[in-house]
């Protein structure tokens, strides 16, 4: 699971109000080079929830060099784009869990795939 995915997910158990963002419990993180596509990065940047992104990056150990606040003007800076690209798409949670901040329910991430299926008493 990359931080792009983490940024999009929130806990959908019924009646949960504050299910975003998931806390990340890390067992194993790996890095893989990803195709650098500035147009894609410019498209996705304004849609990223920045505080959640920073929190995720902190957990996966790639927070360094990412600014506290996000501003569109940063997209002009190639150095920033590279760091954003790296944290968003190249750092990968292989094993671990997504933990609901409200209920503590753990959604396991195995072989990089978060298992977000709800149990029958959670729908």
């Amino acid at each position: 699971m990359k931080l792009l995915t983490h940024n999009m997910l929130s806990c959908h158990i019924k009646n949960v109000r504050n299910g975003y963002p998931f806390l990340i419990e890390v067992v194993k993180v790996s890095e893989h080079e990803a195709d650098f596509d500035p147009d894609f990065l410019k498209h996705i940047f304004p849609r990223i929830n920045w505080p959640a992104f920073l929190q995720g990056a902190q957990s996966l150990g790639c927070r360094e060099g990412l600014p506290e606040e996000a501003a569109e003007s940063m997209l002009e800076d190639e150095g920033f784009l590279k760091r954003f690209h790296h944290a968003l798409l190249e750092v990968f949670l292989e094993e671990g869990s997504l933990v609901c901040p409200e209920t503590g329910r753990k959604f396991p991430v195995t072989k990089g795939i978060p298992n977000m299926l709800l149990n029958e008493d959670e729908c």
Binding site: T5, M8, L9, C11, H12, P114, M116, L117, L118
Partner: peptide, 11 residues
């Protein structure tokens, strides 16, 4: 992502 499109976890 493993999910159910009927009860999906997208924020």
């Amino acid at each position: 992502i493993r999910l159910d499109t009927h009860k999906h976890p997208l924020r």
